[in-house]
Every structure is written in C-alpha cells, then in structure tokens.
Design a protein around this nucleic acid. Structure first.
Lengths: 292, 292
DNA sequence: AGAAAGTATCAAAAAAACTGATGGACTTTT
DNA sequence: AAAAGTCCATCAGTTTTTTTGATACTTTCT
C-alpha cells in the first residue's frame, strides 16, 4: 500500500471532470502532475483505471469499481480533518452527562438532537444513576453535567446550577388499593397505609412532607419503588411521568388527594462544576440544556 | 488536507506499540522518520496527538478521538488495495444474473452466500425477469448467467447450459373452486372450467399438455397468473413452491389429479454464453451454481 | 486545414522524506 | 548510586519523490 491521498484526489478529480487537464486546473497543479499521479496510482494498485486510447481518459470497469471506495476514503479523510479542526478549536471529544434515573429523558432529548446536528463527531456519554450519585459523578470528574431533582442536603458549594424543569410527584398505589375507593384521600387516610419511601444515605431525601405514614418501608431507587408499588406492598410518592408506563396490566394509579394535602413538585437542576472550563461543544450543549 | 497515509500509519503504529522507536522498527524505518511523520501529521491536523512530557509518548484525549477514524481510513485503504488485487487477478467487478421470476430464490441462495464469503467485494446484480427475457438479457450481454425453466422453443445455439433443478407444476385454483369437491380430477373435468395460461410471444410456452381447457385466458407472468387464480377467474398450472405463499387468506390449493393426468415438471437451466470468458469470480460462481 | 484542447514523456528543479548522529531525559539493571 | 539501556527531539546531509515546464503528438471542433 504505497499510494497517497493526493493520488486518490487526482483519480477522483479526473473522473469527475473528465480529463487530466481539467483535474489539474481544479487541483491547482500542472497537467503532467495529475497524469503522473494517476499513472503511479495505477502502478500501485496494479490496475488500469483509465482507457487512454481516446482523446480523453475513459474510466475502465475496474476503475469504476474502485472509484466508489476511493471516494469513500477521501470523504473519510476530509471528515478526519474537519473533526481535528473542531477539536483544535477547543471542542471536547466526549461529553459525559450524569442523569438521575428519575429525570424524564424528554428533558434532554431535543437538546441532544440539536447538539448532534452541530457536533455530530463529539461523543456523548449518558449515565443514568440512582439517588444523588449524579452529583458524585460530577465531583469525581466522571461527568461534566448532571441533571437531577433538587435535594436540600446537597452540598452545592463547588457547583453551579440552573433549574431546567420540575417533576411532579403524586401519591399512587396499585389499581385496587383500598384508598382508591375513597372519593378524596387525606393525610389521615394515608397515615394508616404502608408508605414506600426512597431513602439515600442521609435518609432526608426530598421534603419532610414525603414521610406521611406511620408505617414506612424504604428502598433506594425509584424503579425499585415502582416495583414495590406494583407488588402491592404500599403506596408512595412517585414522579407523575413514570405512572404512564404500562406494565403488563399491573398499572399504578394516583390517588385523588384532598385540598389540604396536594401533590408536590421538585425542581430539576442542571449542575456543573464551578471550576470546570468547558470547550466549544460543552458550552453549546450547556446553552441547549439550560434553555428550558 | 495535506497529510499522507504513511503519516496515519506512523500514528497508529505508535499508539499500538507505545513508542516511536517501536513503531519505527515495525514499519522498517528509522525512529526519527516516525517521529517526524507524527509531528507533521500534528501540524497538518493542528492537533497535539501525543503528550511528550513522559518517557514515552502518551496519547492525548484529542489523539484518542482521532485514532479510531484514522484507523478506519487505514482499513479502507487496505481494502482498496485488496480489491484492486482481486480485480488485477482477473475477477470481474460485477456479475449480473438474470433469473426467471418463476425460479425459487432457494436455488441460488446458498451459492450466493458462499460466493459472498470469498468475493465480498464483487457486486452481484440480480434481475428477476418474466417469460424468456432471461435469455434475452444473456444475449444482450446484460447478464452473464441466466437461470430459467427450460422452454423448447429457445434458441440455444449460442449458449451452454446445465440443469440445476426442476420445478413441479400442479393444477390449482382458489380454495372454493368447484373442482375441489371432486375426489379425483381428470382431464375431462378440467376441460370444462376456465384455465389461465401463461403466454409469451410464441404462445407455445411449456408443453402442450398445459392447454387443457376449452376455455382459455392468457396472461404474461406467473405472478399475474397467481393473482388471477386468487381472483377466482379460473384454474391453472402453477409452480408448486408458489402455492405455499400465504396471501391474506386468499389461499390457493392444488387439485388431486387422476392417474391419467398427473403433474408435470420442467427442468431449471443455468445458461451462459458460449463465447463469454469468465473472470475468477465468475468461474467460482459458475462452479457454485452448477453444483446443484 | 487550422485552432483549441487533450495526452504522454522527459530532464531539471523543488519539495518532501529519510537517514544517521547527537545530546538530553527517563527507566531499569547492576 | 552509577551504569547501561531506552526513548525522544533535532539537525544537517542525502535520497527519494513530486512538480514543473517544455515538447511532440493526437483528437475534436470549426
């Protein structure tokens, strides 16, 4: 494999323009340079690319077969250069996002689509993590963005953040839960049925309002919690958007809460490290994510 | 875009082997040549590929991002050379097969699979054609192989052929056709119901036995014929393998013919032009197709 | 027939790549 | 701790490759 990219360029230009002379003009070279380049390519590939009997070179069937592959290589080379340029301009080659598993993917979908359009070469690594691990990922430099519901016991001293949405939590249980028979569910009603609560290390996750029942079971993941609710183990506050998921008929249903109680919402934050300096792509993605 | 394939090779070898010296040994060059090549590549891409502070060069994140693409290009270049070599050895770049629409695809499936393994770069063009067009394609050099049922009025003087299988024709009609009520269908029974017959230009397609009924409708394609049968327009001789195709419940069914009548079979021929000189790939495909 | 545009080829010039040597830095061995 | 072994960047000189510009010939168009 001795041939060069310039030889491939000469080959392609000749095919596209129909003559060595025209190709030479396009490439800013002399006719003989192009002619030679193609000849050398032919020697290297040991294939006759053009039939030179006529006035202008005519692509042989072998040449045609090789043309598309040569073209592909050239395109790849151009892409490599472009990508290098983007990197050189200060774009990162990969951006890691840590998302709390609770966050609806919708929050980033459109941002990522838009991002992919402009920086299709920059890799995106998406991590769904439980509890406040998203912040940990950020602090450990495993991710540069975190998207997670706001929890009051987070240490935000090293971070900056922006609210990008809200998650509405509703009290829900399996369809046949006795509380569903009530026209209106109040705090006292909830107190007498087992509640499933998310519990992190701190045990103070989310607002105090969350612990309502006198009988509490704990788990450490929202998805686990959903499973427990489906398993008819109790009721719990769950993100509203997770209720929609059909699950083989084992559907969950929100209670109609009384006025005194009501559902509650928690802000979703986009967080990043104060000290982190973003590249081009990072700034663009930041802009997209924060637009919400 | 000024960089060369050799520079990419130097880059990749350095990454793979961990040092410029080792890469140089592998590439059969001097250390400084590799070092320079990589430096020039870095200048060209305007990206620092290696961190040279340590004892051995360490790939930067930018370098890593570009590595895979560079590797891809190199692979493509190698494939180009290989393909060129195959062409140079006398393989054709594309092989066209004309198949009569009636031929079951099974007849060539395994051959093509085997062929693809050995000559994955050689394009296959498959043409399904009606009536005896397969031969026409062959004579017009639009195809180098034809696979078709034998018809006695074909002029085979310029062709060679080999029988590669048989097609069994059965008399069939839609499921509720009155003849299905008979325990045994005989020539006289068939005569009194409308028959659908394939008709080419010559009107003598297939054996004389085919025209049985006194009431004949003609069509020029087997698939059209199937549609007519499904449309309850008559009965006809159809290739057995086409009966299996389920068609939204509008299924066809073969008659149980009496002993005097019986189904008939027609050989399937692989044909090619006497004068055509095959390349490497063509000979191999010929071998595979004729093995049946 | 003549002008215009194309091609292959060649020697000379320019550019690029390679070589081999050198000094300095880091690792491993002694 | 010193010595030996690797590794790297750099550089001047050499080799190789590419480009150039000129030339002679062919085809196409008018």
């Amino acid at each position: 494999m001795h041939y060069s990219i310039e030889q491939l360029e000469a080959f392609i230009a000749t095919v596209e323009l129909g003559s060595f002379s025209a190709a030479a003009r396009k490439l800013g070279k002399v006719q003989s340079a192009v002619s030679m380049a193609v000849q050398n390519l032919e020697i290297d590939l040991a294939v006759t690319l053009f039939d030179r009997n006529g006035h202008t070179p005519k692509l042989t069937t072998e040449g045609e077969a090789l043309l598309y592959r040569a073209y592909d290589i050239l395109q790849s080379c151009k892409k490599l250069s472009e990508y290098a340029q983007i990197l050189q301009q200060g774009a990162e080659s990969r951006i890691c996002l840590a998302m709390d598993e609770i966050t609806p993917i919708d929050y980033i979908e459109t941002s990522l689509t838009a991002f992919a359009k402009k920086y299709s070469d920059v890799e995106i690594e998406l991590m769904f993590v439980g509890l406040n691990n998203a912040i940990d990922q950020l602090l450990a430099d495993e991710a540069v963005f975190a998207i997670l519901p706001f929890i009051d016991d987070i240490d935000m001293s090293a971070l900056l953040s922006k609210e990008v949405g809200q998650i509405k939590f509703v009290a829900a249980a399996w369809k046949e839960h006795p509380l569903h028979e009530l026209k209106e569910v109040n705090a006292d009603d909830l107190r007498h049925h087992r509640q499933i609560v998310i519990s992190g290390q701190s045990n103070r996750r989310f607002r105090a309002v969350e612990r309502l029942s006198s009988q509490i079971w704990l788990c450490n993941s929202h998805y686990l919690m959903l499973d427990m609710l489906r398993g008819k183990l109790g009721w719990g506050f769950v993100p509203e958007h997770l209720l929609d998921n059909p699950w083989e008929g084992r559907e969950l249903k929100a209670f109609s809460l009384g006025a005194s109680l009501g559902d509650f919402t928690i802000p979703i934050l986009l967080c990043w490290k104060k000290e982190h300096t973003f590249g081009l792509a990072g700034r663009y993605l930041h802009e997209l994510l924060a637009k919400k």
